[in-house]
């Protein structure tokens, strides 16, 4: 199966995105990072570290679990319910500029759920979307503001992002 990103490539991509974030947001004061469970969370932490390495600015970082907001949750009730992860946003998001972080952007339904969830925590000034991989096939009108890599796929394929924090190593692989 083709590996489309290795550890080195992921590291350089995150550094590039950190630079883009700094470039596009004139002031970093109101900026916060929120990672979507599970792999968006370590990605958000790494982006915070990368931004800090560039200009010593600490960006507050939180974790968001969207399981309870999924639109397919109660539609086909067979099998066990999905595991609910931790949400931990230890700061107010009112009047903040949120950078929402996830590993793969596909149908857009996860992001829809995340937007619903975030709005219940407060009223941010803006929400921007950061993804490591955009694999296309959107089902909702959602677009990422920062993309690590565009990977053309067919719907029958799956994109597996592995990160050291969750999977022991950094790698992006396409599986048939």
């Amino acid at each position: 199966m083709p590996v489309v990103m290795d550890a080195d490539r992921i590291g350089r991509t995150l550094t590039r995105i950190a630079h883009e974030i700094i470039e596009r947001n004139r002031t970093l004061d109101q900026l916060v990072l929120v990672g979507i469970q599970r792999r968006g969370v370590p990605l958000a932490r790494r982006l915070a570290a990368a931004i800090h390495a560039i200009n010593q600015h600490e960006v507050p970082t939180g974790a968001l679990d969207i399981t309870l907001y999924r639109d397919d949750l109660m539609r086909h009730t067979v099998g066990t319910q999905p595991v609910v992860g931790r949400t931990d946003i230890p700061f107010s998001i009112d009047d903040k500029r949120i950078l929402l972080v996830d590993d793969v952007l596909y149908t857009g339904r996860t992001i829809r759920a995340a937007l619903d969830a975030l709005i219940e925590f407060g009223r941010p000034t803006s929400i921007q979307l950061v993804v490591l991989i955009d694999r296309g096939h959107r089902e909702l009108p959602i677009k990422a503001d920062y993309v690590g890599k565009n990977v053309p796929t067919s719907p029958s394929q799956s994109v597996q992002v592995r990160l050291a924090e969750t999977d022991g190593r950094d790698e992006v692989e396409i599986q048939e």
Binding site: Y69, G85, R86, D88, E120, F121, G122
Partner: peptide
Amino acid sequence: AMREIGERPIKKVP
């Protein structure tokens, strides 16, 4: 995870 919902400003999920 459910306990955290009770600590939010809006204590409700859909």
